[in-house]
């Protein structure tokens, strides 16, 4: 423990700040993780309380969700490549790959909105039953996070486009991709627990 501490102390100054920020962001992701864990717990408690309304297997469409999932998973991949390009200081590639990520993210969000709108239109809104309340909230919270990520991505791309790859924007890209991968992992849980186990 002491050795590690000393190393951190002796590392160059600018690295230390970056290191601290990334570490702080990790801790933030942990808190977000707890937040989702609580929502998952709520879903687990309520998922059978359909109160005469439809159950998961009646409303989930496996193919649709699979496409959503693939969109998000591949966006995680393109985001990763984008970040590597950022570390290599290839500005155009960064913008290219993150644009692909952005489009995939947007299509994911649009697909989710369409799904929600459909459910509400046929009378299966969050007001219908406790199951649907918890479903909309869990998936919606994830969707909200993705949207926030997309807004961040847009702003960051504009900055990189106008001011180039500065140190701070590379750091922010690192944080953004951490966030993006984190949302991906959460989605995998949602996909498994909500959709797969709901359909099965």
């Amino acid at each position: 423990m002491e050795d590690i501490d000393t190393q951190i102390q002796e590392a160059p100054k600018y690295d230390k700040t970056d290191d601290t920020i990334v570490f702080g962001f990790w801790i933030y992701l942990m808190t977000d993780c707890v937040l989702f864990a609580a929502l998952f717990a709520v879903y687990a408690v309520l998922h059978n309380n359909t109160f005469g309304g439809p159950s998961g297997s009646q409303i989930f469409s496996p193919h649709y969700v699979l496409i959503e999932t693939l969109a998000l998973l591949s966006s995680s991949f393109t985001c990763g490549i984008g970040l590597i390009s950022a570390y290599n200081m290839q500005k155009n590639r960064v913008i290219g790959w993150f644009s692909v990520t952005f489009l995939l993210g947007v299509s994911f969000v649009i697909m989710e909105i369409v799904e929600f709108a459909h459910l509400i239109n046929v009378g299966n809104s969050f007001k219908r039953s406790a199951f649907l309340s918890s479903y909309f909230t869990l998936v919606g919270t994830h969707g909200l996070h993705v949207t926030v990520g997309l807004i961040g991505m847009l702003i960051l791309m504009i900055r990189i486009y106008t001011k180039g790859l500065t140190k701070s924007s590379v750091r922010r890209l690192t944080l953004l991709s951490l966030f993006w991968h984190f949302l991906d992992i959460i989605w995998i849980f949602i996909f498994t627990i909500v959709y797969m186990m709901g359909i099965a």
């Binding site: 977000d32 969050f126 309340s133």
Partner: peptide, 27 residues
């Protein structure tokens, strides 16, 4: 974060009519 979730769910119940903690609706 658990507090954040709990309060948010209660607010949703009160505002948009979800059924997390209600006596009816499966809450």
């Amino acid at each position: 974060p658990i507090l954040t979730v709990t309060l948010a769910l209660l607010y949703l119940d009160r505002t948009i009519g979800t059924h997390f903690f209600t006596a009816s609706g499966g809450g």
